[in-house]
């Protein structure tokens, strides 16, 4: 689903002493089927932005298009239910939202609310737990008896069981160990490709933004600060640093190598093994200009 923001602003508690402009005049679009990372330091407006994607918040000014749906400032939106069926949101620490007696019931809760019949729900539960690699034996257990990592997978399964077209991920790997983080991100990436989803990932990990995203939006003080492909944006260390963001470590390393040690290697998305090979070649006195 194609997503576009047209001069969108959002103000928390307008006309009160607590008035706070969280989004300011945002205009951008997200191509259908793309994987977009939204980055920005804490408080830059990322979470406010994504809460508009399923109509949890309505713009104070401007218009948002999500597929055929329109969210417009000052208008009551009648089709939120349909929108929420299409846009699945994995919030931060989604396991805090588990509440049912069993894992299966928790996963079924979303589709049930939207009137999906039981047979179809069962099929979806099976598919969701397969995707998240939850052992089927856990389906009848209480979600509260599971480990943190497993609870996270249950919560994510619940979102997947809605079979959304747009997947919105708000720091989905926060608090997981490194191998758990990689598993979850790889899983989302596979689903993104397989189901041709439009994926919006809010992340603090520049490494994840570099590895998974086709396109990046950088937020700062509620405004769109920069947008572009990971390779374009991450080469500009000073631009990122100005808004308290880092470049991915591999790029920081290569920049330092060039500046302080005269080792000239351009980053074009190589793997570490490939970089090591090029680096070793240079150290032996070989260069690109032979």
């Amino acid at each position: 689903m194609h997503i576009s923001f047209d001069h969108v602003s959002y103000i928390y508690q307008p006309n009160s002493p607590f008035e706070h402009r969280a989004l300011e005049d945002l205009t951008f679009s997200i191509e259908s089927g793309s994987f977009v990372a939204v980055i920005g330091h804490t408080g830059s407006g990322k979470s406010t932005l994504i809460q508009h994607l399923n109509g949890l918040l309505q713009p104070t000014e401007g218009v948002i298009h999500i597929g055929d749906y329109t969210l417009k400032a000052g208008e009551k939106n009648k089709h939120l239910r349909e929108l929420r069926e299409k846009v699945g949101v994995v919030f931060q620490y989604p396991e805090h939202q588990l509440f049912e007696e069993t894992v299966a019931k928790d996963i079924a809760f979303g589709p049930q609310n939207f009137g999906v019949d039981q047979k179809e729900i069962d099929r979806r539960i099976n598919e969701a737990v397969k995707a998240t690699k939850l052992p089927e034996a856990l389906l009848d257990r209480s979600p509260f008896d599971l480990s943190g990592g497993q609870m996270r997978r249950v919560a994510i399964s619940g979102v997947l069981a809605m079979e959304p077209k747009v997947l919105v991920l708000d720091e989905p790997t926060a608090g997981l160990d490194p191998s758990g983080q990689k598993q979850i991100m790889d899983m989302f990436y596979d689903l993104h490709k397989e189901k041709e989803l439009t994926t919006v990932l809010v992340t603090h990990s520049m490494e994840d933004a570099l590895s998974y995203a086709d396109y990046i939006l950088i937020m700062n003080h509620g405004k769109l600060y920069r947008e572009g492909t990971p390779l374009e944006l991450f080469q500009q260390e000073d631009v990122l640093e100005a808004v308290q963001l880092d470049v991915p470590e591999v790029i920081a390393f290569l920049t330092k190598a060039k500046k302080e040690y005269g080792i000239n290697l351009e980053y074009k998305g190589q793997s570490l093994a490939e970089l090591a090979k090029e680096l070793a070649h240079q150290l032996r006195g070989g260069s690109d200009h032979e």
Binding site: E249, V250, F253, K256, Y261, I263, A273, A276, L279, A280
Partner: peptide, 30 residues
Amino acid sequence: FVSKMADHLKKEGVRLSREPLNHQELLEDL
């Protein structure tokens, strides 16, 4: 990252004097 990079470099035949803890240490060694 530096630890992984050091490993790949060793595989390429680059000799390193110690396990690097940061960019600086690895680059000095290089």
